[in-house]
Structures are given as C-alpha cells and as structure tokens.
C-alpha cells in the first residue's frame, strides 16, 4: 500500500474515525475513569498497548483463523494482552494500577479493541494494523485526556493535580460525578462534529473552485 494509505490510517485513527468521539465506542472506561487528566492518560496508554499488541497478532494470524471461530480467537488474544499489561502495570506503575483498579481487566470488553481487530486488523497487513493500533490508541488517549482535563478543571479546580483556578473558584462537583462525564462528553462530541463539518464544507468548496483537484485531497489544516 502507498504512503497515502498509511497517512489515512493514522488520521482516521486519531481524528476522523476517533474511537470515542466519532465511533462512540468504549464508553464505559471513557466515562468512568475520566475524572482527571492523569487517569485519562494512564487508561489511554494501557489501552493503546493492548490495541497495538492485539492488532498486530490478529493481523499475523488472520489467514490461519477460520471465519467461524475468529471472534473467540480474537478475544483470547485480547485477553492475553490485557493480562500482560495488567501484570506489567502492577509491577512497574503500582500507584496508577491502584487508581485504575478494576478498569484495567475491563479493557478486555472495550469495544474499540475488538472493533479494530474485526474491522481492520483481520483485513490488513501487519504494518497497517500496527499503525492503526497506535493511532486509534492515541486517539482514544487524547479523547480521555481532554475529557479528563475538562472534568478535573471544572469539577476540582485542578489540572494534573495542580490548582489552576484560584481560591475564589467554586468547583462544580457534579462534573466529577457521572452526570458531568455525560455532559462534558456531549459538548466535546458536538465540538468534534462541528469541526469536521467545517472541514468537509471547506473541502467541498475547494473542490468546486478547481474541479481538477483530486477528490479527497488533504483537508485544509483547520
């Protein structure tokens, strides 16, 4: 595949097909752990590790796995990687492991991971599967960090654990509680959609002006 395809894989994973903000997958960990930015990055990186591993392995074994048993085979691969990540985090990042707790084993049932295995890795080569795993994971991490930051700043007056809003600021505790997760995520999704609509409109206008330009060319950096 060409360089262009690689670029599309990366941009799709990071932004145009962002697991959380566009595909709306993996809502459980997204809503549950995003009470602050640090949890967001921890959960995001753990998920990225699993995604990268499972995507690569699924891509490698895609030709030997019969259609009928592919889902159980993928689940075994994913569960193995989750166990490995869980053990490694327990050994090397004990504090983070304690805060994320039950949500690490639950990465197994994060739909983003099975979704990428089924929709992408099982149909593409190892290199692109790897790129897709990394970019989808980083896209997931970014979404969690943004959501965690918004909730931490509004809900606790802090960012990365530091006071940022001054003493007169009264944190809105509901932002740290579950309703705040839904509210903040709704606004962030709306913002993403708005930006994407603008990009599309700009691309369409550009295509009209110069019909010779190849369709689907780079969107203007918005």
């Amino acid at each position: 595949m060409s360089e262009l395809a690689s670029k599309k894989v990366v941009l799709d994973g990071l932004w145009y097909n962002n697991g959380v903000l566009v595909q709306m997958l993996g809502m459980c960990p997204t809503l549950a752990v995003s009470t602050n930015a640090e949890n967001g990055i921890g959960m995001g990186l753990a998920t990225t590790g699993v995604l990268l591993g499972s995507n690569v392995i699924v891509s490698v074994i895609r030709k030997v796995i019969p259609q009928d048993v592919r889902i159980p085979a993928y689940i075994i691969v994913i569960a193995a990687f989750v166990t490995i990540v869980d053990l490694l985090m327990n050994a090397f990042f004990l504090e983070l492991h304690k805060t994320l707790g039950i949500f690490i084993p639950l990465i197994v049932v994060n739909c983003i991971i099975l979704g990428r295995a089924e929709a992408f890795a099982s149909k593409n080569g190892v290199f692109h599967a790897m790129l897709d795993g990394i970019s989808t994971g980083v896209g997931f991490t970014l979404a969690l960090v943004v959501l965690g930051s918004v909730r931490e700043i509004l809900g606790a007056g802090q960012w990365w654990g530091m006071d940022v809003m001054g003493a007169s600021f009264h944190p809105a505790i509901s932002m740290i509680l579950p309703p705040g997760a839904f509210i903040a995520l709704g606004f962030i999704m709306a913002g993403t959609k708005g930006i994407n609509l603008r990009i599309e409109a700009a691309a369409a206008a550009k295509a009209k002006e110069s019909p010779a330009a190849p369709a689907g060319a780079e969107p203007s950096p918005a």
């Binding site: 796995i65 048993v69 085979a73 075994i76 691969v77 193995a80 490995i84 053990l87 490694l88 327990n90």
Partner: peptide, 20 residues
C-alpha cells in the same frame, strides 16, 4: 486452532507472570 491460540496465549501470560 482455538486450542493452539489458547495455548500460545497462556504461554505468554505465564511468562509475563513469571517475569513480574
């Protein structure tokens, strides 16, 4: 095939457990 996949996965998990 499922048995092989499960066996290999278990091997990797056991190795990680041993290591950590």
């Amino acid at each position: 095939i499922l048995t092989v996949v499960g066996g290999v996965a278990t091997g990797f998990m056991a190795a990680t457990e041993e290591f950590t």
